[in-house]
């Protein structure tokens, strides 16, 4: 049985008189300890798909979600709000795109990580130790001191590490990383990818990596799902898809990967009329 199973997921946003179908009936699975990437350009529905996994989208009528999402055999859609809170952070944890806005500016990093631990392990005595430990695990130097730092005192890369520490603090079974490197400098991007890679090696944990960058997936993921305008257009092992893309959109995305040493090769803009 897979850890996560999504069947015919549809997500529709309604404003006063318009409604847009952001996700148009997608199905996919994710196994225990498996790492899968969802790739697609901006607006293709990756983030809303990720959010729907723990029902983090706005409630109806603004946003309607249909289809079936089951996590470890339980149906997320029919869960009570209270049971859902036990899944969020504890079973499925998130890292978001913008570390600077994803952390609360008026609380210390340590407090925010401790909050996650306290929510799910209320009887835990040594919360501070756990926080320091989780900061150390993501490679933050002087974790004792950094615990008491406010987000604005950290660089973007450090903030994202703190976010990762917070997500990992409760030992989730599935980590959803929504464009974890998009807002960061290229050198920092590499560090964060390496960090995620080492975490994956150390822990038994599934990873759903969301990105628009084909370049970073082969290091981290076994399988890739390509999304285009709310649909899955291609799915397969990373290697196969990278070397032998079947869908023209996938081909176009792969052509956008900047390669070192590939001088003279022009970046091709995607020609949507041909798709």
């Amino acid at each position: 049985m897979s850890l996560l199973e999504v069947k015919n997921l549809k997500i529709t946003f309604s404003a006063r008189d318009t409604s847009t179908e952001a996700v148009k009936g997608i199905s996919f699975r994710l196994g225990e300890n498996e790492s899968v990437a969802i790739v697609g350009e901006s607006g293709s529905g990756k983030t809303v798909t990720a959010m729907s996994l723990t029902r983090l989208l706005p409630p109806p009528p603004a946003c309607k979600v249909s289809g079936e999402i089951s996590f470890d055999g339980t149906n997320i859609g029919s869960m009570s709000e209270k049971d859902l809170r036990k899944i969020r952070g504890r079973q499925i944890a998130y890292i978001f795109q913008e570390p600077s806005t994803s952390l609360n500016p008026v609380f210390t990093v340590g407090y925010q990580i401790a909050e996650a631990i306290r929510l799910h392990f209320p009887e835990e005595k040594n919360v501070r130790e756990k926080v320091v430990e989780s900061l150390r695990e993501v490679g933050i130097l002087e974790p004792q001191k950094r615990c008491d730092s406010y987000p604005y005192e950290l660089s973007g890369g450090m903030q994202q590490r703190a976010m990762i520490a917070m997500a990992l603090a409760c030992k989730p079974r599935l980590l959803v990383a929504d464009e974890p490197t998009t807002a960061l400098d290229v050198t920092i991007q590499k560090q964060i990818i390496d960090l995620l890679k080492s975490v994956r090696q150390k822990r038994r944990m599934s990873l759903l990596l969301i990105t628009h960058n084909f370049g970073i997936i082969s290091e981290l993921c076994e399988r890739v799902i390509v999304m285009f305008r709310g649909n899955i257009v291609e799915e397969g092992a990373c290697r196969d898809v990278l070397h032998n893309p079947r869908h023209p959109y996938t081909r176009a995305l792969i052509n956008c990967i900047p390669r070192l040493g590939a001088r003279g090769r022009k970046l091709e803009p995607i020609d949507y009329d041909k798709l």
Partner: peptide, 26 residues
């Protein structure tokens, strides 16, 4: 609509907690 609110919900905080702790102080 700020990002930290989404983060707070995503780690399992209740609505009351999100408002009284996270949103109130901002």
């Amino acid at each position: 609509s700020r990002g930290y609110v989404r983060t707070a919900y995503a780690k399992g905080a209740s609505r009351g907690r999100v408002y009284l702790v996270h949103i109130a102080r901002n």
